[in-house]
Simulated assay, not measured.
Amino acid sequence: MTIMKVLFLISFLFVNIAKDNKKSEMANSSASDKIVGTWLSADKDLKVEIFNKKGHYFGKVVWFACLPSTPNMDDFKDTENPDPKLRTRKWLGMEVVKNLTYNGESEWKNGTVYDPNSGRKYSSVVRLKDNSTLIVRGYWGIELFGKNLEFHRVN
């Protein structure tokens, strides 16, 4: 075999390996992005938009129910936050889910979820029960000591 044929075969193999790796990355990205979208809580009092930012998943408040006796949605502030500098930020648009990473099994882990009602931040794991149902578990310490919130896809 001539040197040109060997070089051609090697370059052909590298190109095909790169294509296969790209396809694998795209399939994994597609699977990990299954939680991207807007989700409504089972109690129908909160909408959160989940999005991908540099391979991690975040969620921001896009709507929540307000009682007539309270300020309107745009006026709610993060008054319970332990950091006084953050107490003037609005609930609307606030990132309440941060840094989730996909583990390959319809599960996103190692993130946090923030509760603006209490000002507390919890470790979080998110599981996709099916294409339209998301289970968010917030916990302290170990997952056993936590609480689930169920959300349903709205788009």
Rank of each mutant, 00 (worst) to 15 (best):
E105W: 01
A65R: 11
K53V: 07
W63L: 00
V62S: 01
A65L: 13
W108N: 06
C66V: 15
G93E: 11
V113M: 00
W108M: 09
K109G: 01
Y102H: 06
D83K: 03
W91D: 05
K44I: 06
G37K: 11
W108P: 00
K85I: 08
G59F: 08
W39S: 06
G111F: 00
H56F: 06
V48E: 03
P82D: 08
K47R: 12
T70C: 07
V48S: 03
I50Y: 08
D45V: 03
T101I: 13
L92M: 13
P68R: 11
V113E: 02
F58P: 02
G59C: 11
S69R: 11
K53M: 07
P71E: 09
W108K: 03
V61P: 01
W39T: 09
Y102I: 04
Y57S: 08
Y57K: 12
S41I: 09
G37R: 10
A65F: 12
G104D: 03
T112F: 06
D83W: 05
F64Y: 07
D74E: 15
A42K: 15
G93P: 04
A65C: 01
V97P: 01
T70N: 12
Y114E: 11
K54G: 10
K98G: 07
Y102R: 05
E105M: 10
W108V: 05
N72L: 06
D78A: 05
I50L: 15
D75Y: 03
T38E: 13
P71Y: 05
V48F: 09
P71D: 08
V97W: 02
I50P: 01
W63G: 00
L100V: 05
L46S: 10
K47P: 01
D83G: 02
E95F: 08
K54C: 07
S41Y: 09
K90L: 13
D83Y: 02
D78L: 06
R89K: 15
D75G: 01
K44Y: 04
N99K: 14
G37C: 14
C66H: 04
I35V: 15
G55T: 13
V113C: 00
M73I: 15
N81W: 04
K44P: 01
M73G: 02
N52I: 13
D45P: 02
F51N: 06
S41A: 12
S106T: 03
V113S: 00
E105F: 05
M94Q: 08
K77S: 04
M73K: 14
A42C: 04
V62C: 02
P68H: 12
E107Q: 10
R87P: 00
T79Y: 05
F58N: 10
M73W: 01
P84A: 09
